[in-house]
Amino acid sequence: MPYTTDEGGLLNNFAREPKIYQSEPATASQKRNLLIVAVVACVLVGGLIAVAFSVS
């Protein structure tokens, strides 16, 4: 683990930094899957709101 020592003799530990990489643009199938998940989430939230209004 990397560490440094300051003037007073104290050790400072630092976390290991991950490798940096550039993300690749989403493919058509990934975009389609994200759209499906978004629609399902909206339907679920809408249904929960409808149930909350009908119960109250």
Rank of each mutant, 00 (worst) to 15 (best):
M1E: 10
M1D: 09
M1V: 14
M1R: 07
P2V: 11
P2Q: 14
Y3G: 05
T4F: 08
T5Y: 05
T5M: 06
D6M: 00
D6I: 00
E7K: 10
E7I: 11
G8Q: 04
G8T: 00
G8M: 01
G8A: 03
G8C: 02
G9H: 05
G9P: 05
G9N: 09
G9M: 08
L10P: 00
L10Q: 04
L10D: 01
L10R: 06
L10N: 05
L11I: 13
L11V: 12
N13S: 04
N13V: 06
F14Q: 03
F14M: 06
F14T: 05
F14R: 06
A15R: 12
A15V: 02
A15E: 15
R16D: 02
R16Y: 06
R16T: 06
R16Q: 09
E17P: 02
E17G: 06
P18Q: 03
P18K: 07
P18A: 08
P18V: 02
P18H: 10
K19V: 12
K19I: 06
I20T: 11
I20H: 12
I20E: 12
Q22S: 03
Q22V: 01
Q22T: 04
Q22D: 03
S23M: 13
S23F: 06
S23L: 10
S23P: 02
E24R: 15
P25Y: 15
P25Q: 13
P25I: 14
P25E: 11
P25D: 13
A26I: 04
A26F: 14
A26Y: 12
A26R: 13
A26M: 15
T27Q: 09
A28G: 01
A28T: 10
Q30Y: 09
Q30M: 12
Q30A: 09
Q30S: 05
Q30G: 04
Q30L: 08
K31E: 14
K31Y: 00
K31G: 03
K31M: 08
R32S: 10
R32Y: 13
R32V: 04
R32P: 00
R32A: 15
L34H: 05
L34D: 11
L34K: 10
L34W: 02
L35S: 13
L35G: 12
L35H: 10
I36K: 13
I36C: 09
I36M: 12
I36S: 09
V37N: 05
V37P: 00
V37I: 12
V37W: 04
A38I: 03
A38R: 12
A38T: 03
A38E: 07
V39H: 06
V39L: 15
V39I: 14
V40A: 14
V40E: 03
V40P: 00
C42N: 01
C42H: 00
V43W: 08
V43H: 01
V43Y: 01
L44F: 14
L44H: 00
V45N: 04
V45T: 08
V45Q: 03
V45H: 04
V45S: 07
G46W: 06
G46E: 04
G47C: 05
G47H: 06
G47L: 11
L48W: 09
I49C: 12
I49T: 13
I49H: 12
I49M: 15
A50F: 10
A50C: 01
A50G: 04
V51F: 13
V51W: 10
V51I: 15
V51P: 00
A52T: 00
A52N: 07
F53P: 00
F53W: 13
S54Q: 06
S54H: 02
S54K: 02
V55N: 07
V55G: 01
V55W: 09
V55R: 15
S56N: 14
S56K: 13
S56M: 11
